[in-house]
Design a protein around this nucleic acid. Sequence first.
DNA 1: CTGAAAGCGCTTACAG
DNA 2: CTGAAAGCGCTTACAG
Lengths: 333, 333
Amino acid sequence: MATIEDVARRAGVARSTVSYALSGKRSISRETRERIEAAITELGFTPNAGARALATSQTMVIGLFVQFFEDEFSPAMLQYVLPISDAAREAGYDILMVTESDGAHAVQRISSSGMVDGVMLLNVAYEDTRLPVMHKMRQPGAMVGLPRDPDGFDVFDLDFPESGRILVDHLAERGHREIILITPRGDVYERGGAYAWRFRDAALERAASYGIRVKSYFGETTQPAINQQLNEILDARQETAMIVHNDAVIAALPSVLYSRGIRVPDDLSVVGVFSEDFGRLFSLPYTAVETSPNKLGRLAVQALVQRMLSPEIATATRVELVPPHITDRGSTR
Amino acid sequence: MATIEDVARRAGVARSTVSYALSGKRSISRETRERIEAAITELGFTPNAGARALATSQTMVIGLFVQFFEDEFSPAMLQYVLPISDAAREAGYDILMVTESDGAHAVQRISSSGMVDGVMLLNVAYEDTRLPVMHKMRQPGAMVGLPRDPDGFDVFDLDFPESGRILVDHLAERGHREIILITPRGDVYERGGAYAWRFRDAALERAASYGIRVKSYFGETTQPAINQQLNEILDARQETAMIVHNDAVIAALPSVLYSRGIRVPDDLSVVGVFSEDFGRLFSLPYTAVETSPNKLGRLAVQALVQRMLSPEIATATRVELVPPHITDRGSTR
DNA sequence: CTGAAAGCGCTTACAG
DNA sequence: CTGAAAGCGCTTACAG
């Protein structure tokens, strides 16, 4: 591999001149620049990223920490990863994707060895074990998902309480007085998936204010348990509407309803919480709160990039709950 | 951040001694080692990855190049990414995941800057534009998916021709004489997704040898086109069996069949090509060739790691077509 | 407008 | 068993 030294020799200049030609940090005479450019082309020179990182203390890499839980539905994750990767690249950063099950250890390992300029967390739990490590590392951090202690980070999340409320409002306006609510699985609550109870508590409270009765179930996440549970729920059903806040359940819902001959919205009103892409993937004909993974991912990257560029704001805390928006697919009475 | 110099000073030894204590590449007296270890703990020292990479020419990072095509079904991709990431970590490597749409440029950029020790390609096309770059780069490469010119790389793929044959055999043995075949979308052929025609050609040839008539369709990949096409195919159907080699179509199939009252296998035999995880995700009750993304991903990583460790084999070519295996879910006559 | 040199934080022959 | 020093390939004050 050609080094900057090779280029300098070939162009008959000093290494520093080549470096400045590359960075544009000082003006170079036309002639010199052309000789350097020619040499670079002829030698096929690309600066070595490791050497550059060592000299500048900048790797131009963002660490993306993803956790996969057995009890969660994986396709949703990709919706965040892709926009994050794209947004990072647009800002000139590459993505080191880390999927180790011991997330705290992974963050520690990657941040302390200086492999990345910033850390991005996905699938954040309320008491996330990665947060203590994040607080001590020298790089700035951002995340999608609201933890208990977001101090010093950029945090983006859907406004889940408001999501719960507007779905209840939507059904209340249409006269429903008894509602089924299917939530994430119980484990998610125990693990501290804040989105689960933030959504549910707000929905229950709003329903109570209307005098609406809500029957709440922890949804399953794997087959055949999903279908079995749905059938049991539907066997016992007296309610006229259903709110589903569980990706795996809503993905399975159309076939279960078909098989039972339950028509939506004539026999049952259904609303959910999922992204447009997710809905398209599973052909879901249900009105839903859009979860905007795309938007959340991009916002988080942009905020993180800002933070990496200006250490002054490195200690500020920014929590942004994106307002929910209902996509009406006509699945309610 | 503490450096190796800080540790050396604190332990009262030379930098080199600390380095050797870290790597274990020469014996250190008990006392000295203990002093060094204490210093490391007290200072919270972790070697700087960039400096190490510069000194050793090893980054311990694998570049994973993923392409997302509009006309392909994304959830399948994650099934490869996860096992690859896990297998890499087990071997001591991290994953730089690159999703740029210009794959050739991305490989060029990452490999020439020395950010990775090896390159892994996913979603490989027959005439993959990334291959020419791969042939010129200095790092070893591996891929999942068979290109026209695999020279010098480790290539792993499902044996698609054999997959097509055993599915035809499976239906032939059960007496089917007329079969519907739904393939990937036409674009995939044009783009050079070899798995598409390798599977189809072999299936058609085997069917011909039995005197079985096959009606072949390019499947759609997005709703509502999928359902519409399926309905048209089923309206015109005279066949007794269906082979589906298209993720998006098979994911949508259960609800279409439900809605038309077509029972499997009583009214129609159905077989597909998908992984166990994929089948679980979409609750697919169909007999299928297992695509083993898990196995393919891990094999490719292991081969790549071998290659990175022993430059002697760096020029060898290894093409491994994993024999297909049918998972019988009772969806045929 | 350009060069010579120090320094980033490691590893590894070379010496003893 | 341990140290002093060169070198990996860049960037950036410092000088002119």
